[in-house]
Write a protein that binds this DNA or RNA. Structure first.
Lengths: 222, 222
DNA sequence: GCGCAATTTTAGCCTTAATTAAAAAACATC
DNA sequence: GATGTTTTTTAATTAAGGCTAAAATTGCGC
């Protein structure tokens, strides 16, 4: 049986495999860190998941999802993102609270529930923070956005996605007026990995740390 | 910590204590039966819950919730009934499917979620099957309905509540046109605990087994 | 009021998913 | 290329919550 713990591990592994740099190995310690468990717990689960053929475990080297494991990860992520969007749109949840709520609900809903909120939302393909929502068949689109921290100076762009991993950071972004669809332009970049000077919606100017800019994804515009 | 299992036990005990005949003791075997676990499992949990002061365990005699236990039971029941109503009203779930879905979701939602669906539903006091919804403070109304199986012959009445425990029975009721608000009248009662002859909405006449009639609650009307 | 049947509890074990501590392997530094 | 540090794995526990089988208790029938 696929337990909640299994779904959580597979989801984390998937996100790391397809995250920041996709060629980096997904190791015991990285997963242990993300999931807030000991390294030994992660190893135990890796062995169990390998036996279930949901991933391949290369001892001391890391893990890689099988297509069966990836399928479950994508189903879980689909649940998560549909629930997030539903909370935001139908129940008017604030931006920074939907992730935590969805983390619990994603394991509790049925296929029926998934289908009904999918329909109620009009079969969305983009989630509340701009992430692609996997299809029921397990397809996921690569939206190919640029990190705001990598945006060229003077290049106007629109915020298309933000990382949902830190609620406090989301509240901070909102306070600055940085949301999906917001128009931004980097006007200056301080040396030594210093903050960006950012034009927001062409009317405000703010200084933004690289850590935050790294978690904002934009689309350049003409 | 209050686990899902604990909430489920407390909910079942509460429902039995306040159910069909409230003076009957809530025993190991009755709970084991309702929860589909062995009697030994129920005893184990009784001991644990007694240690947590959520109930009083009188060995070989049964259990009785403390006010702390009752509070948790009522919170769980409130969650359950709000979710059921939300599924039915906002997501157009059919009558017979909401109980199963709510059984899982009731343990996963936050207070925030509870408050938001409560508001979205307009602070309802009656659930999807006509049950009273406990308040946030743990008050629950006794609606004092009559079982259809006890309704006097020739006495017109309106269906106010149905038992949600059996989805198949709910589908059967719906097929017969028996829903909340439906007007009924018993026109004949077969001997030896036989079926009732029932006038439905003054236009249909059906024969109804006592088992079903026992699970329908009505309000007599003038 | 005795004996038997039904119910309840106890005892012991299983599974899941976590833990800590110790051993093993990999990596980095000189 | 030896050595020390870091990472990973192994081994042994723990805590929930379930199970079966056996023992204890209750209560019913006569």
């Amino acid at each position: 049986m696929i337990s909640q713990a299994i779904e959580d591990y597979l989801k984390s592994i998937y996100k790391l495999q397809h995250g920041d740099n996709p060629n980096e190995r997904v190791t015991t310690s990285v997963i242990a860190d993300r999931m807030d468990v000991s390294a030994a717990s992660a190893t135990n689960m890796f062995k169990k998941l390998a036996e279930m053929h949901l991933l391949v475990h290369m001892p001391y080297q890391g893990v890689e999802l099988t297509s069966a494991g990836e399928k479950i990860a994508l189903e879980t992520i689909r649940h998560h993102r549909l629930i997030e969007l539903y909370l935001a749109q139908a129940l008017d949840y604030p931006w920074d609270q939907i992730d935590a709520e969805a983390d619990r609900l994603e394991h509790a809903i049925s296929e029926e529930f998934e289908d009904r909120i999918d329909k109620a939302l009009g079969y969305p393909t983009i989630g509340a923070h701009g992430e692609p929502i996997p299809t029921k068949q397990g397809q996921i689109e690569d939206l190919g956005y640029l990190r705001l921290s990598d945006l060229a100076i003077g290049q106007p762009a629109v915020i298309r996605r933000v990382s949902d991993s830190n609620p406090e950071m989301l509240r901070y972004m909102k306070r600055l007026g940085l949301q999906l669809g917001t128009r931004v332009e980097v006007s200056k970049r301080a040396p030594f990995s210093g903050p960006l000077q950012l034009k927001i919606d062409a009317d405000k100017e703010e200084s933004l740390g690289l850590g935050v800019a790294y978690n904002i994804f934009v689309d350049a515009i003409a």
